[in-house]
Amino acid sequence: MTITASWYLVVAAILFGIGAIGLLIRRSVLVMFMCVELMLNAVNLTFVTFSRTLNDIAGQVVVFFVLVVAAAEVVVGLGIIVSIYRSRRGTTADDLHIMHG
């Protein structure tokens, strides 16, 4: 018998939390961005686990779409980072706060 689904889901939840914490405490835009990927992976794991529990393929299909979304996000996000980095030094998110209030 395999491990019960709950364990996978707990792992996913913790992974989600780690990703969120990383996004909150890191200052490098690239790392923040990787943390978003961690969160998306947590979601993927959740979907796949539910897919198994419910014996329903939809959960796996979703993961497929999430992969596409993640890829598109990465392309655009890295494009933005590159375009910003070209005009100013430093990629920490803290360097960008000319607008506030």
Binding site: A5, A13, F16, F50, L54, D56, I57, V61
Partner: peptide, 25 residues
């Protein structure tokens, strides 16, 4: 956040009906 999710789910994670859009295996 993680704590709240775990507390909310501590008894039952998946409560849905099975296989609406095709079986997974």
């Amino acid at each position: 956040v993680v704590g709240a999710i775990l507390v909310l789910a501590h008894i039952a994670w998946a409560t849905g009906t099975k296989s609406v859009s095709g079986v997974a295996s």
